[in-house]
Simulated assay, not measured.
Amino acid sequence: MTGRIMPWLWAVALGVTAWGTIWALGFAPADWQQGETVRIMFVHVPMAWLAMGGYLGLGILSLMSLIWRHPLADLAARELAPVGAAVTALCLATGSLWGKPMWGTWWVWDARLTSVLVLFFLWLGHAALVRAFDEADRGARAGAILALVGLVNLPVVKFSVDWWNTLHQPASVTRLDAPGMHVSMLYPLLVCAIGFSLLFGAVVLARTRAAVMERRIRALETARARRADVPA
């Protein structure tokens, strides 16, 4: 099934991402306060959404691993973690680039920034932990427990700007009453978010597919080695 899906997924993901990027960088207006630096938003905000949404997915996979012992959930979680760490790193990097002209500093120990940094370490911790054991099952269980414990950080990331007085601006896109952003910026932002999300899914799916194939190859090699050791 994935073999049939992958070419279409890559094509749609690259097409939507290109469309959103051209729209955001070439045609969306500059902000009246932030000027051209507001264009960092078209990468930063989707990366932040993917960092949190991806970690929620990691938690679901970890729950499936611990309850149903599903081997595909272990493989998907193992391959998801490095991709999640990468998008979280991009979120932090673009946030710093955006913060310098807006706040006058690259970094502050703001509640939102600090909680996203903790999220980045959780991603890295999971990626390292599942690879730290010789037995893959033990690593998968340890990583699943860490991922589930780390879920408590997601509400902190989401609501930190509401719970504490922070430099980071409050939510302007996901407000329930009305978005605090003009449609000329909101629409290209949503297209970019869809494109990056499709790319995220394509990368994770490709990595998981490769991991399944690798496991099958190892199983075949082990079976051949065992047959070779059996005396005629």
Rank of each mutant, 00 (worst) to 15 (best):
L58Q: 12
G59D: 07
G59L: 05
G59W: 12
I60G: 15
I60Y: 15
I60R: 10
L61C: 10
L61I: 02
S62A: 15
L63A: 15
L63I: 12
S65I: 04
S65P: 00
L66E: 03
L66H: 02
I67A: 09
W68E: 06
W68S: 11
W68K: 13
R69P: 05
R69H: 14
H70V: 12
H70C: 14
P71R: 05
L72V: 15
L72I: 14
L72P: 00
A73W: 08
L75S: 13
A76R: 02
A76V: 06
A77K: 00
A77S: 06
E79A: 13
E79M: 15
E79N: 12
E79W: 12
L80V: 06
L80D: 02
L80K: 05
A81Y: 07
A81L: 08
A81N: 03
A81R: 02
P82Q: 05
P82G: 06
P82I: 08
V83K: 07
V83M: 09
A85C: 08
A85M: 13
A86E: 04
A86P: 07
A86Q: 04
A86S: 10
V87Q: 06
V87E: 05
V87P: 10
T88I: 00
T88C: 15
T88L: 07
T88P: 10
A89K: 02
A89Y: 00
L90M: 14
C91Y: 09
C91R: 02
L92M: 11
L92G: 06
T94G: 10
G95F: 09
S96W: 05
W98N: 05
W98R: 03
G99Q: 01
K100C: 03
K100N: 10
K100D: 07
K100F: 13
K100Y: 14
P101D: 01
M102Y: 10
M102A: 14
W103V: 00
W103Y: 08
W103D: 03
W103M: 01
G104H: 05
G104P: 02
G104N: 04
T105K: 13
W106I: 00
W106T: 00
V108C: 07
V108F: 14
W109D: 08
D110K: 00
R112G: 05
L113F: 08
V116P: 11
L117P: 01
L117Y: 07
L117S: 13
L117T: 12
F120G: 06
F121Y: 11
F121D: 07
L122D: 13
L122P: 01
